[in-house]
Write a protein that binds this DNA or RNA. Structure first.
Lengths: 343, 343
DNA sequence: GCCATGGGCTAAATCGATTTAGTATTTATC
DNA sequence: GATAAATACTAAATCGATTTAGCCCATGGC
């Protein structure tokens, strides 16, 4: 049983394909198709189980009503939640989302953009990897709107971005630790040239400086970019050895690091918060349920998704709008400190 | 700047579109295109940044090299991991995956199938909702291969499925609890007509019967299909009130219920395993990290994804193969009992 | 010198829609 | 009764690829 096309319906209903097309697109009235013909065509279409071929339609119209979403890793809870929000949000505007994971790999990211472009998506929401700016400029040059999420390119302010106030969020967390009396605050972060992580790092240093606390390099652990789970775990273990002596608190700068950290802490039997206070950037079910519960700087994931979608929809509505590629500051949403038992 | 098409290249290289097409599809040698022309076309294509339009190609060839994946909810860790595995697996065979969530909603599931069908995906991997069988038969009638995952339709054995041995898995877990001396085993499950959950339930009853333990209805808590988080939590709380008296162990039959259960247990300050032993079907990071660690019956998620993909690829390779719609038993993979501290 | 063969390419049909420009018929206008 | 306008449709171009059939030219055999 082959698929039913518009011309199958035309034949069966005894009209032209144009007429069927008008009826299927609610242009029948505008095109003055008679009531009887409209009904006849609708009935035939229903009986035959017609489903319009979106490839053909997209080819002709140049619009696919599809958005490409590129995240780092869909199995990470931050991105899974973000993806779900964006999917739900897109549905409201009658757009479909195609998502894929870069695994933080430059080459893969380029391939994904290429693939989405070949599939003619109408717009993009991208969690960029370093050096992706040029590739993204090409999309913009083709008049395809792009919104970055979670990360941004400070030197490419013409690529709009929606993210959290990373510097402010980490500053807020660090302030909180200091206010609670901690002075030897360890930091665990990942090695990257991306600005959002640099911002987080500077949030930490800014606050230390403000309080006249000298920044000890030994208290900052940078996990190499391509470290696997075991390697990262080993480095975290090293940092934790100083618990109670060289550090009295530890701040994990990502969700993923925090989960690894919790695992390491559990194994090491360090008492939280007595021997070590713990704070993490970005929340996770685990932090809410762990004993003790772990304090976090929460990112408003849903809001990130919503803002990104509405910015994208705006640009899809007004292609090449006046402010099309105007440089603008990234939209930085407020984080929220959730104080739990770990501090 | 418009997109570059095959005819733009043809014009610039001074050849016909056919020639360009042959070169781009590595059919140049077969079509005896000369070395110089091949190189000229390749150079022009590279210079102009040509990316073939997959809509046009798909329209013409009837193949999109795309697989539709329908899961219950992409932000649930089980499905997120499954989706990632399938994405990675598909990449090996040079297929792209489009995924979407049903939220366990019949209507949405139908809409999603419709949407994927309109987008001409070549095959489907589906976590079905009840009553979806007819819709799926239609896809098969159009010669589109479908593989069910996680769930199946016992009365539609012509729709192939890859899942775990649910009955065996729950039986294994129940046996373990009994062997450890627990006799008053509470069960928390969700209300559904889907066979996989019925299988899990019967795994429990079978083992109780085998050991001559009478099945008390009061020990089985069934969470209604459309209960929200709070409602479900309330019902779990009710069951937990019996900890130490009417029940001495509790077995959560899904990942999601287990996480809710952990939260309820944490709040209620029930001592695990002293007052109550805890077991969950399907693992989760939280169970590994919670104190005490929670024992689980683990599903081999990666293997489910791999088996589903390879079954699908097989059917994509041999369209309408002899065993096309032959009835067959679902592929039931072995579960693994991971004993932790909660029992 | 004629025909067959093969090399190197192109023309044109096709996939399934959308959309513009038109045609044929009826009705209204003066 | 001729013209204009409205009604109810349809023909055909188009989107960007793939693919079949075939054209033209050069070479070789006899």
């Amino acid at each position: 049983m082959k698929k039913v096309s518009i011309s199958d319906i035309a034949k069966k209903a005894g009209v032209s394909v144009s007429t069927v097309s008008f009826v299927m697109n609610d242009k029948a009235v505008k095109m003055r198709i008679s009531r009887e013909v409209i009904e006849r065509v609708e009935n035939v279409a229903r009986e035959m189980g017609y489903r319009p071929n979106q490839l053909a339609r997209g080819l002709r119209t140049g619009k696919t009503r599809t958005i490409g979403l590129i995240v780092e890793n869909i199995s990470n809870s931050f991105f899974a939640t973000l993806a779900k929000t964006i999917e739900d949000e897109a549905k409201k505007y009658d757009y479909k989302v195609v998502y894929c994971s870069t695994d933080n790999d430059e080459v893969k990211a380029r391939e994904l953009i290429n693939m989405l472009s070949q599939r003619q998506v109408d717009g993009y929401i991208i969690t960029p990897t370093p050096k992706l700016a040029e590739e993204i400029r090409k999309l913009q040059a083709e008049n395809k709107p792009v919104i970055l999420i979670d990360r941004y390119f400070p030197e490419h302010r013409e690529i709009p971005a929606v993210l959290v106030d990373n510097r402010g969020g980490v500053a807020k967390g660090t302030e909180y630790l200091i206010q609670k009396g901690y002075r030897k605050i360890g930091l665990v972060t990942i090695e990257t040239e991306m600005a959002h992580m640099k911002d987080r790092l500077s949030g930490y240093f800014d606050v230390l400086e403000k309080h006249g606390i000298p920044a000890e390099e030994s208290r900052v652990k940078i996990i190499p970019y391509h470290a696997d789970r075991d390697k990262a775990m080993g480095l975290i273990d090293e940092m934790l050895e100083g618990a109670g002596s060289s550090i009295d608190a530890v701040f994990f700068l990502t969700n993923y690091l925090g989960v690894l950290g919790i695992e390491a802490i559990k194994r090491s039997r360090i008492k939280v918060p007595d021997q070590l206070a713990v704070l993490c950037f970005d929340d996770n079910d685990i932090f809410r349920l762990y004993t003790p519960t772990i304090s976090v700087v929460r990112q408003p994931i849903q809001e990130i998704g919503q803002q990104a979608m509405s910015a994208l929809i705006e640009r899809l509505k007004h292609p090449g709008g006046a402010d099309g590629f105007a440089a603008a500051d990234p939209l930085q949403l407020e984080t929220e400190l959730i104080a739990r038992e770990s501090i």
